[in-house]
């Protein structure tokens, strides 16, 4: 399983790729809303992260409360990987 550092780097890389920005600009307390990402970009980012880690994230366009900062996305990836590992 990936280390927390690898997960964070992977999440940042997918976001940077989608938004055509430098991953080095991203921090865990960066809010998605600060990145000027359209609703479509957010969907594409989530998809890219899910594909990279082969997981399904609990994300809904109708409930943005849970995944507002990049740290929350990293945490959701970690939790999902952990829970998949536990049930495997």
């Amino acid at each position: 399983m990936s280390t927390p550092q690898e997960i964070e780097a992977g999440v940042f890389e997918e976001i940077a790729n989608e938004l055509k920005i430098e991953a080095a600009e991203l921090r865990v307390d960066t809010k998605i809303s600060e990145l000027e990402a359209s609703s479509l970009s957010v969907m594409e980012i989530i998809f890219a992260i899910e594909e990279r880690f082969n997981i399904e994230l609990p994300y809904s366009a109708n409930d943005l409360a849970g995944l507002q900062s990049l740290g929350q996305i990293v945490e959701a990836v970690e939790n999902t990987l952990q829970s998949n590992a536990n049930t495997a």
Partner: peptide
Amino acid sequence: RVVGRDVCRPFAKSRTG
């Protein structure tokens, strides 16, 4: 990510899609 996980609740605060 627009499909509700609950019944459809148009205009409700608790709507999920």
